[in-house]
Nucleic acid binder design. Structure first.
Lengths: 135, 135
DNA sequence: TTTCACTTTAGAATTATTATAAACTAGAAT
DNA sequence: ATTCTAGTTTATAATAATTCTAAAGTGAAA
């Protein structure tokens, strides 16, 4: 994704393209593959890469804004930290607890044949499959 | 499960049946249905129910001991707190984020037809399905 | 250029959990 | 029964992730 598109992405989702947001957005979205991270890892990577430092609170704010705008998804993983994913399409994950690594699984690579119906009064929002790995 | 069986359960898993462990174990395992809880909710419920108070640290210790012994499973749910489940068989969950409530789904009620193979060098430990609910 | 609602920031506060170390206790050995 | 000891409980401190606060900064509309 090009810088011009990133600016558009921010504006169209009602996020003022500030210096910090643009820098974070470029870091996250100017890449080919999807990217998984925690706030902590993102903070370190940005600190290494960039000139001006961005405060941790801003990284939290920005990641949440991006999530609310639908530009990031939060992945449910056991443990203390929240994981985020630049892949916002419907998909699943391998989770390697030895390395705390997440790997995307395309939605088409898992087919569910039988599924229970939702408890009464509720609807199914989405189905997430986790394939936990071992060595 | 009867008290005598609970004592056996503790002893056979190398856990000395102390006053506190027996009290917690009876609260968790002397019931028909499976039970989902967080340490916080368990602490409150025990405080309401019992005479002598059990310290929060002991509840953490005990829940972890029970988990290690295979008497409880930990359920991966997005959010800050850890959820535990007295159902230790292979099964899945509905998760209602509005009420933070977990509901068991029997392993037989979900059939997965197609599944990707594990990344090289890794094996599949288990597959967990979450059906997220909305109103 | 002025204005102001939105944003960033440093640091404090909060929340869940784990660590510490002293007091206690179940059960084995005497 | 009494003593002993490793395992357990406890209150409290420490840690870690995240959220809150309120003051200072800034994009962009007028």
């Amino acid at each position: 994704m090009k810088k011009i598109d990133i600016l558009k992405k921010l504006r169209t989702s009602g996020l003022r393209p500030t210096k910090q947001r643009v820098e974070i957005a470029r870091f996250l979205f100017e890449r080919e593959k999807t990217f998984h991270f925690t706030v902590e890892s993102l903070n370190k990577l940005l600190a290494k890469k960039t000139t001006a430092k961005i405060s941790l609170a801003t990284i939290y704010n920005t990641v949440h804004s991006f999530k609310t705008a639908g530009h990031l998804s939060e992945v449910e993983v056991r443990g203390n930290k929240s994981y985020f994913d630049t892949n916002v399409s419907n998909h699943h994950h391998f989770y390697d607890s030895e390395t705390s690594e997440l790997i995307d699984i395309d939605a088409n690579d898992i087919v569910i044949q039988k599924i229970p119906k939702a408890p009464n009064g509720k609807k199914i929002k989405n189905v997430e499959v986790f394939i936990n790995l071992k060595n």
